[in-house]
Amino acid sequence: MSGFKTRELPSDAFVLYIDAYHCDIKEKNKIRKASVYVVLGIDLQGNKDIFGFYTFFSSENKADWIKVFNDLIDRGLKRIMLIVSDDFPGISKAIETLFPYTDHQLCLVHLQRNVRNQMDKEDSQVFNKELKNIKENSLDYEDGLEKLDDLCSRFKSKYPSFIKHIQSNKERYLCFLKYPENLRKHIYTTNPVESVNSMIEKVRINLGGYFQSVDILEINLLIQRDNLKNGKWKKPIPAFKGASYEILQLFNKKFSVQTQNY
């Protein structure tokens, strides 16, 4: 366990996917609710791996995210092109602080779920249909932003707070449109890491509804990771491997600008 948590990471990554797995864990003879943040990384060659996982019994905040990112940095990770996550409290500020040149994509699938929760059925269907159109048919990032502004203006008077929230994060919701079209479908959602969490959820159910300790939870995470590394993740992901030249060009362009600004 300690070897995994302290192992050296690649210095550069194309994308990190971060998602929270919520579960019950027994600690000091009490069942407590915990959040486990799984960080799934893909390097510049398209290799996938779990870079780290972090268990907290407190609610999300910037200080905890600083700890997470500092751990990744301490183990060698220096430059990340893109981070894909949900809108966790404090995560955007932490990314801006420690990875100021990294793009931050908020999960578009989670936004669609929020739309269904915040709007009535008819309005949510219209909004999400238009959101799908923006995702699939925008010419580029600027075109997508313009279309999202137009869409939000149609619903602003009826859902002022919710629409204000969307507009305040519009650059993060549409960040994936900055990237080549053949990569966009892979980087607008946290689904890649959610699939890992779903495996752990099956283990929890088989164990009777909760984990006996943090160690048992993390050991099971490691088992799932090892199974994936020996199976589906043994070779680079075809979509990313096929676009490795484009990814490298984008990466070098982004971080050559960073170097010039120092």
Rank of each mutant, 00 (worst) to 15 (best):
E96L: 11
S58Y: 10
L40R: 02
K33W: 03
I42Y: 07
N114V: 14
P236K: 09
Y37A: 07
K28R: 15
D103R: 03
K253I: 04
S2H: 10
N261Q: 13
Q224K: 14
F155N: 09
L248E: 13
T189C: 10
S124H: 14
F4Y: 08
E27R: 09
P192Y: 08
A94L: 09
N206P: 00
E60P: 14
I95K: 02
M1H: 10
K33T: 11
G231F: 06
V214H: 00
R7G: 13
L222K: 08
E130S: 11
G46V: 02
M199N: 15
I237M: 09
K5C: 05
S85M: 00
K147T: 03
D19S: 03
G3F: 13
G41V: 01
L217C: 03
K185L: 10
L16A: 03
D215N: 12
L222T: 02
E146Q: 11
G144T: 06
I223G: 05
N182A: 07
L145R: 05
D226R: 11
C175S: 15
E8Q: 13
D143F: 02
D19L: 01
I166V: 13
D64S: 12
N133K: 14
L98Y: 09
M119N: 05
A13L: 13
L108E: 00
S256D: 15
D64N: 14
E142N: 08
P10N: 10
F53W: 07
K135P: 00
S58R: 10
S161F: 11
S138I: 02
K30I: 13
N47P: 12
